[in-house]
Design a binder for these strands. Structure first.
Length: 425
RNA sequence: GUGAGCGUAGCCGAGGGGUUUAAGGCGCCAGGUUGUGGCCCUGGAGGUCGAGGGUUCGAAUCCCUCCGCUCACCCCA
């Protein structure tokens, strides 16, 4: 028996209302903030991600789905959405458009990891990127937009974590200080952090092992070592967040696992959940990425959020989701002549915009009505020998349990009289 | 990659060596009305008890191995 591959899942019809709601809110909020949709390929040249995310990151080192296609090219199922969007920005010369260019995407991303709650090998990300402006007001807007998305879905008890990790000017100096601080503490670090000290010292700060946390306690903070320009940017951002009424918590240990970030980094997560896969969304500024990918130097800021984590939290907070309406009418029939009549009538109803279903497989009238009831259909039409002979239909109200004869030619106007056509929906 | 828990029909779930031809509930199908749903009653279909091996006269039940699922760690959405 075949099963969905590990870390993948079928999103079944009963789950879809959650996803549909999330998609609707996403489209609405993007319209509100001026973002246009972009769809990029699900696979890309493997080098795109190694270049942008960073060779030393977990994603690139152990989580990417890489394969060689039949032409011998090395491809990667995309592990995230920012790099492809930036590639598209450069490839299509979007620097000629009014800046910033605001783009959003919704689609699957792939990472080879052990699955657990809120983490799948194929997951769905919604993300957006504002490319072409360094104004901290844009950072604030990006954060505000995510916050509005979550709250418009009804999510509450969220917290915004914020940090600045500087730019290519000030970060190297900071990293040097960080390494210096750790020089005497190296013996206390876990094996992973021994590696990080050499390859990616920023990541030393967010190791969760108690001994490493202890070692990190008095580590120099990136926000205390920003250059004048980065400090100004960070302070302005905080001021703007204040103007927007967004509560935030500075977290000097928040560094994020992707190399392309500069200056602003942030995460939004539910309060009171630690450890588990709690982060709803995260992002930051990546002022060097476009140039890294061959464009001219272009500042940018963006966010990505996990759709299944939103759904997870909607369920956890027991928030209601709208259910799709059942069909309006069920056409039941008894006998060959009636079945022929039912086929024509059902088609006619649909063409008039009425959601209509008819019984299949020559089942008993009882069985047909039972199914109509189970599906929540509120009206049934019954056609038997007598109705066929007289050119009539029996129209049964499944809620009231009452029925009446209607001339076949008048059925549409009768239904309209009951406000059951699309004109009234 | 590491650790823990769990695998009995579509779903939930009893049974922990011998009348077990594997309970019960939900769902599905049909009948109780020669053309009428919901409630009720009756019946039916549906299972290599995750897989393989071992112990035993006898294994869903005990042992081993493997596989899968779930949760957690690492890391992230």
């Amino acid at each position: 028996m075949y099963k969905a591959p590990r870390g993948t899942t079928d999103i079944l019809p009963q789950e879809q209302p959650y996803w549909e709601l999330v998609r609707q809110k996403i489209v609405a909020i993007c319209q509100l903030y001026g973002y246009s949709r972009i769809d990029t390929p699900i696979f890309e040249d493997a080098r795109l991600f190694a270049r942008s995310i960073g060779e030393e990151t977990d994603i690139v080192e152990k989580e990417m789905y890489v394969f060689q296609d039949r032409g011998g090219d090395r491809m990667t199922l995309r592990p995230e959405g920012t790099a492809p969007v930036c590639r598209a920005y450069v490839e299509h010369g979007m620097h000629n458009l009014p800046q910033p260019v605001k783009l959003y995407y919704i689609g699957p991303a792939f990472r080879y990891e052990r699955p657990q709650a809120g983490r799948r090998r194929q997951h769905y990300q919604f993300g957006y990127e504002a490319i072409g402006d360094a104004d901290p007001a844009l950072d604030a807007e990006v954060i505000d937009m995510a916050w509005q998305l979550y709250t418009s879905l009804g999510l509450s008890h969220l917290q915004l974590l914020l940090n600045s990790i500087g730019c290519r000017e000030c970060r190297p100096k900071y990293l040097a200080k960080l390494k210096e601080y750790y020089r005497d503490l190296a013996g206390q670090l876990c094996a992973d952090c021994q590696q990080r000290l050499v390859r990616n010292p920023l990541r030393l700060l967010d190791c969760k092992r108690p001994s490493c946390q202890r070692a990190a306690r008095h580590a120099p903070r990136s926000a205390d070592h920003l250059c004048a320009a980065c400090l100004e940017h960070f302070q302005q951002l905080q001021r703007y967040l204040g103007l927007l009424g967004l509560p935030y918590k500075l977290d000097h240990r928040l560094v994020r696992g992707l190399d392309y970030y500069t200056r602003t980094v942030f995460e939004i997560q539910p309060r009171g959940v630690s450890g588990a896969q709690s982060t709803l969304g995260g992002g930051g500024r990546y002022d060097d990425l476009i140039a890294e990918l061959g464009g001219k130097p272009t500042p940018a800021v963006g966010l990505a959020t996990g759709m299944e984590r939103i759904v997870l939290n909607l369920k956890k907070q027991k928030l209601p989701v709208p259910q799709p309406p059942p069909a309006t009418i069920w056409v039941a029939h008894v006998g060959d002549a009636a079945k022929a009549e039912a086929i024509g009538l059902t088609a006619q109803l649909r063409r008039a915009g009425v959601a209509a279903l008819m019984g299949m497989g020559g089942r008993s009238l009882k069985a047909q009505l039972r199914q109509a009831n189970a599906l929540g259909v509120s009206q049934a039409i019954i056609i038997g020998e007598e109705e066929v002979a007289r050119g009539e239909l029996t129209l049964r109200d499944m809620v009231a349990g009452q029925q009446q004869r209607v001339p076949r030619s008048e059925i549409l106007s009768v239904l309209k009289g009951r406000h059951l056509g699309t004109d009234d929906i």
